[in-house]
């Protein structure tokens, strides 16, 4: 349905670097990433509002990279402020119908408004609508345009939780009815609840494209790792140690011993805070990893305390209140962090 090949572009501080992905008909593709990573830019380049400096875009089997916006048949819905404020809801929904020279405009407007539950406010102006109503009208207008692909730019970001859940149901319904959706968001819960496929975006690049369960089971970005509660996440290189069943993981600032059967090369390492112990002296035991560092933060957790220790990189350990008191842990104190090679979870 939609295919992007090595799309790159730069607008001000925002940049897209070699973006490639493919979306099938009726896919619900969520692009997940922090604010400012270029998600909206990506949508606007698909819609034709911004031209990429390199790369190609194919839609419905045809190259549309330099096709006019009005001929692409792609609808874009923003977080807010995209309804025409001088027109009523009815006129907003009728707008694309008039542009396409449709007959039976009233009937079609009613049908689109019914589909999204916007019939009761057809005569109101956009300025009088609530956030949820506003987005419903915006979706109805996109339906009226008879486009089978919707680009949604954080459409739920400014809604309360009730409206969010109602809108999610509506988006799922539209998707089931044959609309292909590309939805950008920074909200991972939104992504889980809607996506059939997720693309994680970081610094203008798509770093991981996979089904939701895969993205969250094996995060390949600090952003996703953070969302699913993985406190210690590193990207680095894994190397076999000769005459040893251990391997060495090297990332910026640290070298960690791991017990894994993953092949050498670029990998991701996660380490649960509860697997890390803190001591004031070197521990002698089965742990293979011992690092001396300085405590830079102490924060209460749901249970116990999270102690952030700088060892070149930052590691977060979970300790009990008793241990914290006994070891007299405080910011600035030098301590040892220890963990077993088998505690490190490694994946490609």
């Amino acid at each position: 349905m939609l295919k992007l090949e090595n799309i790159s572009l730069k607008v001000g501080e925002f940049e897209l670097k070699n973006i490639s992905f493919e979306v099938e008909r009726c896919d619900y593709f969520v692009i997940l990433g922090l604010s400012g990573v270029g998600k909206s830019l990506l949508l606007e380049s698909i819609a034709g509002l911004i031209n990429p400096t390199s790369g190609k875009i194919f839609l419905r089997g045809e190259e549309i990279t330099s096709k006019k916006i009005q001929q692409r048949r792609v609808s874009i819905v923003y977080q807010d402020a995209d309804l025409f404020p001088h027109l009523t809801v009815f006129e907003n929904i009728a707008y694309p119908l008039k542009c396409n020279g449709e007959k039976n405009i009233e009937e079609k407007v009613l049908s689109c408004a019914e589909m999204v539950g916007a019939v009761e406010f057809l005569q109101r102006k956009p300025g009088t609508l609530s956030g949820g109503e506003y987005q419903r009208v915006s979706l109805a207008r996109s339906l009226a345009a008879d486009n089978d692909i919707f680009l949604l730019d954080e459409p739920l970001a400014s809604l309360d939780s009730k409206s969010k859940s109602e809108l999610r149901m509506l988006l799922r319904k539209l998707n089931r009815n044959g609309i292909t959706i590309i939805h950008v968001t920074h909200d991972y819960e939104e992504a889980i609840s809607l996506a059939t496929k997720i693309g994680v975006m970081e610094k203008g690049a798509l770093v991981h494209i996979a089904p939701p369960e895969e993205v969250f089971r094996h995060p390949k970005s600090e952003f996703v790792a953070h969302f699913i509660g993985t406190k210690n996440f590193f990207k680095g290189n894994l190397k076999t140690i000769p005459q040893s069943d251990l391997k060495e993981f090297a990332a910026a600032g640290i070298n960690i011993f791991c017990l894994t059967d993953v092949e050498d090369g670029e990998v991701f390492l996660t380490l649960q805070p509860e697997e890390i112990s803190i001591s004031t002296e070197t521990e002698k035991g089965s742990s293979r990893n011992h690092f001396k560092g300085k405590i830079i933060d102490i924060a209460p957790a749901k249970v116990g305390f999270e102690i952030t220790v700088s060892i070149g990189a930052e590691l977060i350990a979970l300790v009990s209140g008793d241990s914290k008191g006994e070891l007299k842990l405080e910011i600035g104190k030098e301590v040892w962090v220890n963990f077993k090679a088998s505690s490190c979870k490694i994946y490609k």
Partner: peptide, 9 residues
């Protein structure tokens, strides 16, 4: 821009 995506010239 939105109007253009809706098919307006």
């Amino acid at each position: 821009k939105v109007a253009l995506t809706l098919g307006a010239s």
